[in-house]
Amino acid sequence: MNDAALRWRRPPMIANPWWRAALWLGVGGYLIAAVGSLEINWQRIVAGMPRALEFVQAMAAPDFVSRADQIIDGVLESLTMTLVATVAGFVLSVPVALGAARNLAPAPVYLFCRAIIAVSRSFQEIIIAILFVAMLGFGPLAGVVTLAFASIGFIAKLAAEDIEAMDTRPLEAIRATGGSWAQVIHWAVKPQVMPRLAGITLYRLDINFRESAIIGIVGAGGIGATLNTAFDRYEFDTAAAILLIIIIIVLMAEYLSGMLRARLR
């Protein structure tokens, strides 16, 4: 065999060389046009520099003390909101998840539950929070309702996917013993999806804490409200302290939920 026949290169994804060249040109042209359309105001950047410096300095020297009471209240409020919302979200999402699994629910129920999930997932938490703040007034109640509502879509969607992927043979077996629908769910479905469902819920717990810091900015209570106040007063050192606390709590929550999830198998 000669050398030419032994040469091998990976076949290109797009076979036609003209199309390949055109694609590269298109991507390059788009990048140039995109960068060209940015309007960068250098004067504003220069004018903002001193404030940016002040901000960075404040960050380097966080002030935990002068607003300690408000920070503690905010953190406790956020933690309470997170826990209540996650528990409520979990309880409400279980029936939705069962209904949204194609292998368990008849078509009308399936579509209804999928619609609930779609609505819950299509809005960012901030938008939902603005809505509930308008409906329920400022404060943590609006925050709890927001987070619970967002948790339903998250937990129910992932759990429904897990239910759809489960082994259906045990279901058949339980049905064959004369078990009722509820017994099939409890005996054959629950043992299969419980570990993952618990994992999803723990994951949602730490998402909810992070979100509780954000939705506070639109008036839904918690540490976010405290943070927002600090920024409004140009107390960057207090804001820095709050940000550090949020980071530490999120890290701790992630570590803890990771540890718990590893134990559930």
Binding site: D167, P170, E172, A173, T177, Q183, W187, P191, Q192
Partner: peptide, 22 residues
């Protein structure tokens, strides 16, 4: 069943008792 169709995460006893669910 062909591939046993046990509920894998339950104990042997629970799998047996599931025969009495009716």
């Amino acid at each position: 069943f062909q591939e046993f169709a046990l509920v894998e995460r339950l104990s042997v006893m629970e799998n047996l008792l599931s025969g009495r669910l009716g």
